[in-house]
Design a protein around this nucleic acid. Structure first.
Lengths: 222, 222, 222, 222
DNA sequence: GATGAATGAGATTTCATTCAT
DNA sequence: GATGAATGAAATCTCATTCAT
């Protein structure tokens, strides 16, 4: 693509539609506000300790209103977590498609992506909630497995590893949970940031560097 | 009474009476029973969802009896977790004293120890409880940090790594949380066994093997 | 819309709807219902023996509803007693303003007022509750002192006595608790009516007569 | 009685019997210790708030031991109060026997006695307990009435007043509760000392003086 | 007789959920 | 649709009473 072409390419105007959104959009919008509030409260308090009042207050609505969008507290918990995981799942899906070039680079980029989007962002709280409440919420546990962990273990990372092994770039590894070994240090860093960071903070940049070095050295063919 | 008489006085044989322990022992014993029950219930239900009735029923005692040993549910939670961590802390303390021979072997043994005692045993539940409830229980978070994590990060593993680096056996690594990177895969495997093992089980033996291989290759000097 | 139109716009008549009070009024109303029930129950059972269930049942509402208006049983006790004392305090305040004419008449009227409003009415129960629970409720003790007893001892009666002494109508008396001596017989009659009246009833009319005669004879200058 | 006689009158030696009292005495002794502890605790906490543990601790015995002497908390309350009232009742009985000399003096001495033994001593706490709990303990209410109030209203004071009226010393008064009017200021002073004395203390000496002056002036014939 | 661990009924309080306005 | 007052089931915790030692 030349510069000339670039200049001609004009994105369509994004006109901010401030005026009344359609009823459906409005409902969707409000639902999302409730979810945002719910995630904030659940992350802060945990599922059992959080109250519907907390959620309503966080969303600046009345308690009864929450029940217009979710039929129970459990339903809200499931809905909130699931809605947050969908984008991750989609991106995770997309990311492992083009297997080309250095497997080392692919792996490193993938780990970086996890740090940037999960560990440094809000999604680490979802992981913690699932670890904390998963045993009591089979649906959530299942959903997290289907959308995150399965994609991790049988998808993305696992695929890259296989690709690296095929190329002779990585040592031969036959371990269906290799993705957990590769990503474990990142996940634990996320938990640490939530629970212990104020006692003894992790510097994510250097931690990430060391993590990548150790793991990639660890899988490289000798 | 004369000295002669004194000398003749022979203390009666102390026959170990197994059936009636001293009151102090009995109290300690009962306290431990309550703790065992509490750990089981908290591991199953989480702190907030667990009820004192559950704990009492698990220990086959009346609800009020629990309050003879712990003054509140929170106190029971703290007491139970702390009592379970003391032995770990002590063993962890002792384990890193003799730095001799191959750093690789030392490291491998240490990782094996963690799998055998924490991941394969009950202690993984403690880790999960601390991740789940830590933010709401500063004392527990602190206690876990002081007795487990600090010993892990600044003690044991960290010491072995330094030793390996000095010997030229390991590549130079300067990362204060290296222990987390080294142990992360094990910790996450523990969480997995609690939450997702029935959906997709981890074979701990082979997982451990791969974990050790990758990590030790990862830290070895080239 | 033009100005002309605006002028023609006439606000609809506000017909006082007695059946649907404003939300604020309703809330205040309900709060008062709870207080009425609470006073009845506390007077009957005392603070410690009264249960929140009793109060709720007396008010014909659910147990939880009481907690919408008072955050604890103690709070309800304080709130109920204080709300009952405000009118007394206000009237007591107003009553001692016009010092004119016979001090004897003023004093007699004041004692009569106490019999009519405190001893014959419900307020004697408040006095009993404060005597019974005061030591454990510093705030209530203080509140009763500030609003009733201080006004009695340094206000009202005390002022009338001083006025009578100045006029030469009463014998010189210097006793800061004279009001207690003057009102003591009435207060004790109130306690009697609550505790022993069914065993041996007091005829308040003649008791009041004798009380006034003795006390006024007692303070008159000879 | 002459001085000589006085000197000759020698009280018998009171030999302290430190060695094991008879079983019956010992039981009585222990029972009294429990009662002392109970009175102290009930006075401090009220009936409902006091716990059997408090009483046992105050008496330095085990909780179960209290039940060897009293079959329930209510029984202990009744027993403790009644045991404390017996001496008062007996003395009150004895005190009104010799009607001779000035009725004014008799009355004054009787009021003084009340201040010295009831208001300044511990017995004011019994009065408060009966006012506080009487409605819920018919037996106690009855007992206090029979042993204290009836003797007060139909006995002692009442008799002195009648005697004074007959002598022409007192104005004619026909009021069966005159004793309450006469003693009311003292009783209220007792309640004040328990509940409000730290906020605004009563000086009992001058209060007593004024009380006597006002009441005796109040009943004197003009 | 004395102990104090154990009991369990009953109290206070919370909070998810409903529903009249 | 939105509200928030009302509900009542269920939780924590207390404590009078019992009873094995």
């Amino acid at each position: 693509m030349t510069n000339a072409q670039k200049k001609l390419q004009i994105a369509p105007l994004k006109i901010a539609e401030e005026n009344t959104p359609s009823p459906i959009d409005r409902k969707e919008l409000r639902r999302n506000e409730v979810i945002d509030a719910a995630i904030a409260v659940f992350a802060r308090e945990g599922f059992a300790q959080a109250t519907m009042d907390d959620v309503a207050r966080e969303a600046s609505i009345a308690k009864g209103t929450v029940y217009l969008y979710f039929k129970s507290k459990e339903d809200l918990f499931r809905g909130a977590i699931e809605s947050r995981l969908v984008p991750v799942a989609e991106r995770a899906e997309a990311s492992a498609t083009d297997l080309s070039g250095s497997a080392t680079d692919l792996l490193q980029n993938h780990i970086r992506w996890a740090y940037e989007h999960i560990i440094a962002g809000d999604l680490k709280h979802i992981l913690r909630l699932v670890i904390a409440e998963g045993p009591r919420f089979p649906e959530i546990r299942q959903f997290y497995y289907d959308n995150v962990l399965k994609r991790l273990t049988t998808g993305a990372i696992s695929t890259i590893i296989d690709y690296g092994v095929e190329r002779g770039e990585f040592a031969p590894i036959s371990q269906d949970k290799i993705a957990l070994i590769v990503m474990g240090p990142a996940m634990i860093a996320g938990m640490w940031k939530i629970v212990w960071d104020d006692l003894d903070p992790i510097d994510l940049d250097t931690y990430f560097q060391t993590h990548v070095e150790v793991i990639i050295n660890g899988v490289l063919a000798k």
